[in-house]
Design a protein around this nucleic acid. Structure first.
Lengths: 207, 207
DNA sequence: TAGATTGTTAATCGATTAACAATC
DNA sequence: TAGATTGTTAATCGATTAACAATC
């Protein structure tokens, strides 16, 4: 896996949604599920579900359905979250601190193992179980650990410069919480979590 | 405005991105901008920009471009953020507390004016300038204020039941931070901020 | 007027959905 | 075998992009 071409981000996002639901089903002792049943509460068409999976192989049994446990494991492998993944976090403000303890990342096997800030008052303090380090030392950490993913929670004015800085040290994927469009080399993967934009959507459609 | 049909959420999200950039241009004293220049740093095609605006009217001058200040105001009106909008927040954990002080909401004229929790230890405490209230009293607040938008930051196990509960008191739009697909009446607008899913995307495409 | 840039139409592209043969 | 449900193809739908006439 990992060689598939032209898979849309929509498909990948849905895979994560399927995975979460499969994990819930698993906990509830459900062994087999059909595309119709798994999608009925997820705002997804059964054919969409089958199509999404079809990009990666065959996972069901005709006339029967899908084995909940083994499909979950297959999706984990497809996404690359079947093993633990270490990431760093930059910008230990209130939002950054909240994310360090956010359990949703751990549920997909992602661990925030280091965090960085430029504020001397914060450097050296502890957040959850990790020590806030000086952003100036991030290069060393990235080199030593090989980490290539960063969660960026710095103020919007600094987002572009910090992003450029960490990409210089080998970061290849950024989860960006700053409401800014980062300008970076094409090979760097950026996902924007734009909370105000989502709220703006709600406001617009409410009228 | 507000009567346009079939405007995609993609268009609305881009409008917010345009608006932010226009505000920055405005601060920098730039008066006029072309579709080519405004989109050059935003990963958007100039024709996409013009198309997005065309759903709502004509805002530019041929051969010249767009007046930065007046286009910003037009977009604010289109989105409905030209006036202050009050919302409530439910679930005052670390993430909820961080969102109460998040400046990105204020920048689009959205104010979190009340917050609620079910934990007796939290009820009565202050977060930024607002008092944590008992979720049982949310009906009164919503009735008194007419607020119809809620930011939902409760644990994933409770998201569905709390969402249903507040919809019963007139909530029509929910910004949902819980990694769960809420099942609600069709007229309720839900936007999901799914941080783990965005991170999952980065992990997938990194391979 | 000549040059520039909009607003809009038409073409393209890609994603979703429906339909059904394959097969458990 | 008959019934059920997958995997996949083809049809539909919608969003993006290119092109250009309109016009400042």
């Amino acid at each position: 896996m990992g060689k598939e071409k032209n898979i849309s981000t929509e498909t990948i996002k849905r895979l994560i949604i399927y995975l979460r639901y499969l994990d819930t089903l698993n906990k509830n002792g459900i062994k087999i599920i059909s595309s119709e049943n798994i999608t009925s509460l997820l705002n997804v068409q059964p054919s969409q579900f089958r199509k999404d999976l079809s990009f990666f192989g065959e996972f069901g049994k005709r006339g029967v359905g899908y084995n909940v446990d083994s499909l979950a494991n297959s999706i984990r492998k497809i996404l690359g979250v079947n093993r633990e993944i270490d990431v760093v976090l930059i910008g230990v403000g209130k939002l950054g601190s909240a994310l360090i303890q956010y359990t949703g990342f751990k549920k997909i096997n992602v661990n925030i193992v280091s965090c960085f800030d430029k504020n001397p008052d914060k450097i050296g303090t502890m957040v959850e179980n990790i020590r806030v380090e000086d952003i100036k030392n991030i290069g060393k950490t990235l080199k030593r650990t090989g980490i290539r993913i960063a969660i960026l929670c710095v103020p919007v004015e600094e987002a572009q410069s910090v992003a450029k800085y960490i990409v210089g040290f080998g970061i290849k994927g950024i989860l960006n919480f700053a409401p800014a469009t980062l300008v970076l080399p094409a090979e760097v993967n950026v996902s924007n979590v734009d909370m105000a934009s989502e709220l703006g959507n709600i406001i617009y459609y409410l009228k």
